[in-house]
Design a protein around this nucleic acid. Structure first.
Length: 883
DNA sequence: CAGAATGAAAG
DNA sequence: CTTTCATTCTG
């Protein structure tokens, strides 16, 4: 266990199943996002304001300070020594590559990565500006977050580069790189720390994971409450207290996360967790807490976890009761923050986690009936994690089954019996508080917290937020449907955040309206959810999702769209069902999102891995994928399946991190290969049918106007096509952008293109010849932009180049289209017309070029005619093209 | 480990 | 301007 070896082994295992590489990837990937980082990330992204980062920073100190051993395994290394060097954030293109590479690979199974990269580059070039924008934004976000996390990060380490050069170093570094650099903490002075309590309207993605989300959300919510409370209580103490609290809070979460995440290295994980918990909580917490009561809460939280960990690890029974209490208290606190409902969850968490884990592990699980079960289970969970992936259903079943039995002992029972959760909660809380801390201090804190935390107080805030959220939601919805606004990256995040908030709100509402009555179903749900959350740790594999689904029974498969989920929630909130549904929905949402992302990623990978073998299906695969991609949410179910098959990659930790990252990722639009394919070709023939509908929903279109324009463009194209009769060159390009508008057209185009494409380029052509950095994109853009009306020689050259390089690739088309769209409306202003025309002209040129290649000049001419219609100047362009 | 791509940053 | 490095993964 302990040895480092163990740690490594774990990953290997996971990977092994699918591939070696994947593992690495995972690791790398994770590392980047690495939990800590992820946290930061989320925070940043979600709210730029918040500075929860500090928490991280706080955390790190703890770790570093103590538990050298433990640390060593995971974080320490990073934190302490090396972590300095984080991996630089990916740029837009890289993001794009990452996201689409799999697709490319599928398309061209044989192609090696380099080729794939080339293709990707082509695609990238083709991408619409808007599309790119998203990636760019994300990259930027990423970067910003990264920078925040690592204030003093330098892209170029100095030549020597401490970290990376060495292989091992690299691996290590990578893993942790992003993680929270101790430096950061240090660097970033705590300055921020306290700041915000604001609630965080959007929290999001940082917590992508269900667990985290819950935790985070709670944290956030609590944060305010707690802070307030703390402040009050701690008023005497320094502001530092707040920090501490945060710290502790975070650490606790972190620990949980770790534990959960630890799966890969069961033993190690346990150890780590233990170590950490021990180190942090005890030392810090204890120390802090002891001195002043103010911190108690935090300490409590940690302690419980810690204890659990310890217990699990040591098996020693320790004082379970205490633990429970602590856990409860901690949980309770959280719950308070969040709400009673959450409290329940928490309790469940404390107790259930084990269950889940056990169920997950399936191993012995045998959750013992003994009271201690929790602990043991936990242990098992931590240990089993590795194998965790496996089971899906079990968790739910087990959890349910077990729960009832288990409930007896622990607080869990509440849920079953819980006539009124609130009461029970309160009771529990009180009991816990007393038991755990009899001190008045605690009470005070608690009181404060409670009041604040209690529905009454919060609601106001919540409501406000709510409204906001709602608005946002609405907007978002609109956007999605209409696509009106350019999709902001944040959207997703916001959405998530909103979800969280909603959760909170819902909870509040629910409580207010009706106490939480627990129906049998409810019980199961909450538990499950809890379990899941706790599990969150786990990789988000399919299980969770399944569990969620089941839970949601009431609401069958709403999960698909976030929006849907969200909407329902609010409404649902009102009634019990709603409550349930709310929770379920929330969980679902969270999980689904998280899961989705993870799943998706997994799927991709897995697909790739497996798919390769069977490429013949490329079509199908594409379709599916495209669909999935297009609708992330919707795809959940599918993903689950897939993911299940291949989830390996994500152990617990990674899952979380990945999720976060992935989320963002997901938010990024994925273009269906088809779109590109058209251009590139390759499979095409069959696809056409599939292709018909636009794949990319997610991003959907960037702007409304574009779509229209596109339509226009499309029309033109279609005409062009018709004239051409099947030339289809242009078509390819167009397809992607317009989802709805040009379906028919697209389809046709596809078919036509297919024939062409096949002929023209078989593979895609990889050979674009971009070995050097072409700057096509820039050039193109340039070209487009230049709206003098005329092409400057250079431009012309560029154009030629493009055409040649691309072999008549459609790429340009899209770009052009976009530009065109931008300029749009020829009618409006003459000036505008010019640009538009320009783009058209460019298009025409391209087409012409292609045609020429093919020897179909006539077509080109025809095209010209059309273009001409559009813009009088066409002729000139044409002439250029001819040249 | 090289290498294909692009982008961002640093020198 | 040039170099470095981020990601991915085959050969």
């Amino acid at each position: 266990m302990k040895g480092g070896g163990g740690g490594k082994e774990v990953p290997a295992e996971g990977e092994v199943s699918s591939k070696q590489r994947p593992k690495r990837k995972c690791l790398q990937w994770h590392p980047l996002l690495s939990k800590k980082k992820a946290l930061d990330f989320s925070e940043e992204e979600e709210e730029e304001d918040e500075e929860e980062l500090e928490k991280v920073s706080l955390e790190s100190p703890e770790h570093s300070s103590q538990t050298p051993e433990c640390v060593a395994m995971e974080d320490d290394g990073e934190e302490d020594s090396s972590e300095q060097r984080a991996r630089r954030p990916m740029n837009a293109f890289l993001l794009f590559c990452k996201r689409h590479r799999s697709l490319v690979r599928q398309e061209h199974p044989r192609l090696d990565n380099r080729g794939a990269t080339k293709i990707l580059a082509d695609w990238w070039a083709v991408l619409e500006p808007s599309e790119k924008q998203k990636y760019t934004d994300m990259a930027k976000e990423y970067k910003d977050a990264f920078m925040k996390a690592n204030p003093g990060y330098k892209w170029c380490p100095a030549t020597s580069k401490p970290v990376k050069s060495p292989t091992h170093a690299v691996s290590n570094v990578r893993k942790k790189t992003w993680s929270v650099p101790s430096n950061n903490t240090k660097d970033i002075p705590v300055a921020k720390k306290v700041p915000k309590t604001d609630s965080t309207p959007q929290l999001n993605f940082a917590m992508a994971d269900p667990t985290k989300m819950g935790g985070l959300s709670m944290l956030l919510l609590a944060g305010e409450h707690a802070l307030t409370a703390r402040e009050i209580s701690s008023s005497n103490s320094q502001s530092g207290v707040a920090d501490v609290a945060k710290h502790t809070g975070k650490s606790a979460l972190f620990q949980l996360a770790e534990i959960s995440s630890c799966p890969p290295q069961l033993v190690e994980g346990c150890k780590n967790s233990e170590c950490r918990s021990a180190a942090a909580p005890q030392t810090e917490v204890c120390g802090l807490s002891q001195p002043n009561s103010p911190d108690l809460p935090s300490s409590c939280m940690q302690s419980p976890l810690f204890q659990l960990a310890e217990i699990s690890s040591s098996d020693s029974q320790v004082s379970i009761s205490e633990v429970k209490q602590c856990g409860q208290s901690a949980l309770f606190q959280l719950a308070e923050m969040c709400l009673a409902s959450e409290a329940e969850k928490l309790e469940a968490l404390s107790s259930q986690p084990a269950m889940d884990s056990s169920s997950l592990c399936a191993q012995d699980s045998a959750p013992n009936t003994t009271p201690t079960m929790d602990l043991p289970t936990l242990t098992s969970a931590s240990s089993s994690p590795t194998s965790c992936k496996k089971k899906k259903k079990k968790p739910s079943d087990v959890s349910k089954g077990e729960k009832s039995p288990g409930s007896p002992k622990k607080p869990c029972k509440k849920r079953s019996s819980s006539s009124s959760d609130l009461e029970s909660l309160t009771y529990t809380i009180e009991a816990v508080a007393k038991g755990a801390w009899g001190s008045e201090e605690m009470e005070n804190t608690r009181k404060r917290a409670r009041p604040s935390g209690s529905p009454v107080l919060q609601p106001s805030t919540a409501e406000k937020k709510k409204t906001k959220l709602k608005v946002k939601k609405q907007l978002r919805t609109k956007e999605e449907e209409e696509e009106k606004g350019e999709g902001e990256d944040c959207k997703t995040l916001e959405a998530e955040g909103s979800l969280l908030i909603h959760e909170a709100e819902l909870k509040f509402e629910c409580k207010d309206e009706a106490d939480v009555k627990v129906d049998s179903t409810e019980d199961s749900e909450p538990h499950t959810s809890t379990a899941q959350q706790s599990k969150s740790v786990e990789p988000a594999s399919p299980l969770p999702s399944k569990g969620e689904e089941r839970e949601l029974e009431a609401k069958p498969v709403l999960m698909q769209t976030e929006e849907k989920e969200i909407e329902p929630k609010p409404e649902a909130c009102g009634s019990r069902k709603s409550e349930r549904s709310c929770k379920g929905a929330l969980y679902k949402t969270l999980v689904s999102e998280g899961m989705l992302t993870s799943l998706r990623a997994n799927v991709d990978r897995g697909k790739r891995g497996s798919m390769r073998g069977t490429m013949s299906e490329s079509e199908i695969g594409w379709t599916d994928e495209s669909c999935n991609f297009s609708q992330p949410a919707a795809s959940n179910p599918k993903k689950l399946k897939k993911s299940k098959s291949k989830e390996e990659p994500v152990p617990g930790n990674l899952g979380k991190l990945e999720e976060e990252f992935e989320k963002k990722f997901n938010s990024l639009p994925q273009f269906s290969p088809l779109t590109f394919d058209k251009k590139s070709t390759a499979v095409t023939k069959r696809k056409k049918a599939n292709v018909a509908h636009p794949l990319e929903n997610p991003t959907s279109n960037k702007g409304p106007s574009p779509s229209q324009k596109k339509t226009l463009f499309h029309k033109i194209v279609s005409k062009y096509k018709n004239k051409k009769e099947k030339a289809g060159t242009l078509d390819k390009a167009v397809a992607q952008p317009d989802p709805t508008a040009s379906d028919t057209g697209t389809a046709k185009a596809d078919s036509s293109s297919a024939s062409l494409s096949t002929e023209t380029r078989k593979t895609g052509d990889v050979p674009v010849g971009s070995q050097k950095r072409k700057a096509r994109k820039s050039k193109i853009t340039h070209l487009v932009r230049t709206a003098d009306g005329r092409l400057s020689p250079a431009e012309a050259d560029k154009v030629k180049e493009l055409t040649q390089d691309q072999d008549g690739k459609p790429l340009t088309h899209e770009t052009l289209c976009n530009t065109e769209s931008c300029s749009t409306d020829p009618g409006p202003a003459e000036t505008d017309s010019l640009p538009a025309f320009f783009s058209l002209a460019a298009l025409a040129e391209v087409a012409a070029m292609e045609n020429m290649h093919r020897g179909q000049r006539a077509v080109a001419i025809a095209a010209e005619g059309q273009v001409k219609d559009m813009a009088p100047q066409t002729p000139v362009l044409i002439s250029c093209a001819d040249q």
